[in-house]
Nucleic acid binder design. Structure first.
Lengths: 103, 103
DNA sequence: AAAAACAGCAACCAATAGGTTGCGTATTAG
DNA sequence: CTAATACGCAACCTATTGGTTGCTGTTTTT
């Protein structure tokens, strides 16, 4: 559950969410490529990528002078399971309440 | 998508995640009830609850001198859709890559 | 009516987050 | 070889976060 919080925290920034979406959609990209067009500096992008990496959501590989980053979707599964678990608890509580009322 | 980031940010704290889980599992609870047993002060709990409320994940109702809090599971659906959307983009990118290789 | 329980508000504090700038280094291009 | 490209590292700055303490107000309890 603590790791789920880490993942959510990494996703809990609009800029990082966009970065992750781009990485997922456009495949492996270098840092400068990710920087182009956007309003962020290269270092800002780098920092965000490292946060994503800290949560296991992205990984980098060095190719020549470039650092190529890629999305790692596995932790998304963990996050989903956490959401499902909370929803399930909620449903169970609702069910118990209904049973209580029906008695 | 910006609202998804808000939700993730609210979930991105281990303490808040536990609070939300308790609210979902044990139903409506007062602040002092939520405080008992835990290591947090009443105000710390209050602050976390307001963050959850800011993301639409919890709501309060006043009953006498008590403030009774309840989980609101609807935003979890938004979060899940966001996760699904990213996963789908990933899958699509993988598919395109495979098609490219097969050519 | 007095005491206790429940909570809101504001100020404050240390730590972290998001971001920038500057500089050094390795790789590639001309 | 030289220049340009792509990056890492460290320092620094400001705003936000998570948390505490103290005080006030309101509803119950006795």
């Amino acid at each position: 559950m603590r790791s789920a919080a880490l993942i959510f925290a990494a996703l809990g920034d609009h800029t990082r969410l966009l970065l992750l979406a781009r990485l997922s959609a456009e495949g492996p990209l270098s840092i400068t490529h990710l920087t182009r067009g956007g309003p962020l500096s290269r270092q800002a992008v780098t920092k965000h990528l490292h946060v994503l990496a800290g949560a296991g959501l992205a990984a980098s590989a060095h190719r020549g002078r470039e650092s190529v980053w890629q999305a790692e979707p596995a932790p998304l599964q963990t996050a989903r399971q956490c959401l499902d678990s909370i929803s399930a608890q909620w449903d169970a509580a609702l069910g118990r309440l209904r049973d209580l009322v029906e008695e």
